[in-house]
Simulated assay, not measured.
Amino acid sequence: MPAGLRSYVEAIGGTPLPHGILGASCTTVTDVTEDRIHELNGVEWLALGCCPVRDWPDPCETEESLGEESPGAPPVKEFCRPQVEHAAPITVYAGAECSALGWSYEEARQHAEASLALGEQQALEAAFWRTKLAMDAIDLTPAAGPVNIAQGVAALEGCLAESYGGVGTLHVPAGAAALLGCCNIVREDPATGALRTLAGNCAVIGAGYSALNTGPGNIPADPGTAWLYITGPLVIRRGPTLTIPDRPGPSVNTRNNDRRVLVERTYVVGTTCTVCAIQIGVCS
């Protein structure tokens, strides 16, 4: 068939990964209403669940109480001062640019909105990994080097359990996700669709995590390795989308007749207590 002019069709749509950071099954995502819009500037709170809850031994049942000598000073109950935690805003955006002669304002706006809807989860994951996970983590990687994924998950869950008694969140790069099925490390909860470990922690599989794959301090992973993190539960505040400019006129650069439309959204991602990290091998 002879070559001819190509037909213009609709763009190929897509769907964000179902177990990403915005998956409703693993995180609490709240749309911020107008009366609470100030929360998108960042939030702080008193940590809950990070202070240990201890058992109180019965002094009448201790070995010291059986003797005739004085057992010394009586035991004292300990108190814990909750720490103030905080979460900073993360703004993600998508911009569309084309000649104003071939693109209307509405077409540019729709394209930017569709781009944001498809890619905002990946961008949010990358930003959260870079600014929170990699900056606050305790590195559990042994001196001998990376471990296999089952050993890595076990170490992370142990680290979290020592400081937080609730259900936590395992953060896994998409490039290492297939390895989770090798040892039945995670299973899909039929009721919620969430991926959970045997201990009950939820797993987020992130394309944005895979794009960075850095360790504590944002040091790039060595070839053939990946980083896993674990945190407490995630609470995400999501702002409305903003279109800039909000009308056709200012979207055109009169110097070159190009049209630009930007769509952005602000998130605040909060988690609690300890962040732990470990490096795993992804090659046999």
Rank of each mutant, 00 (worst) to 15 (best):
M1W: 08
L5I: 10
S7K: 08
V9D: 11
I12C: 11
I12E: 12
G13I: 05
P16Y: 01
H19L: 15
G20K: 06
L22C: 07
C26A: 14
T33A: 14
R36M: 03
E39I: 02
E39D: 09
W45Q: 10
L46G: 09
L46Q: 13
R54S: 07
R54V: 10
R54G: 02
D58P: 07
C60A: 13
T62C: 02
E69W: 09
S70D: 06
G72H: 03
C80A: 05
H86M: 06
E97V: 15
A100S: 15
A100G: 15
L101F: 10
W103I: 14
W103T: 12
S104V: 06
A108M: 07
A112H: 07
L118Y: 04
G119H: 12
Q121Y: 00
R130L: 06
T131H: 11
T131V: 08
M135T: 07
D136K: 14
D136N: 13
I138N: 12
L140E: 05
P146W: 04
V147L: 04
A154F: 03
E157S: 11
A161S: 15
E162S: 15
E162P: 09
T169P: 05
P173R: 04
G175R: 07
C183M: 09
V186F: 00
E188C: 04
D189M: 09
P190C: 06
G193Y: 09
N201C: 01
C202E: 06
V204H: 00
G206R: 02
N213L: 01
P216Q: 10
P220D: 01
A221C: 02
D222M: 03
L228V: 04
L228P: 04
Y229D: 06
L234Q: 11
L234P: 01
V235G: 03
I244G: 12
P250E: 09
S251L: 05
N253S: 07
N253H: 04
T254W: 07
R260N: 13
V263M: 08
V268Y: 00
G270H: 01
T272L: 06
C276Y: 00
Q279E: 12
G281L: 09
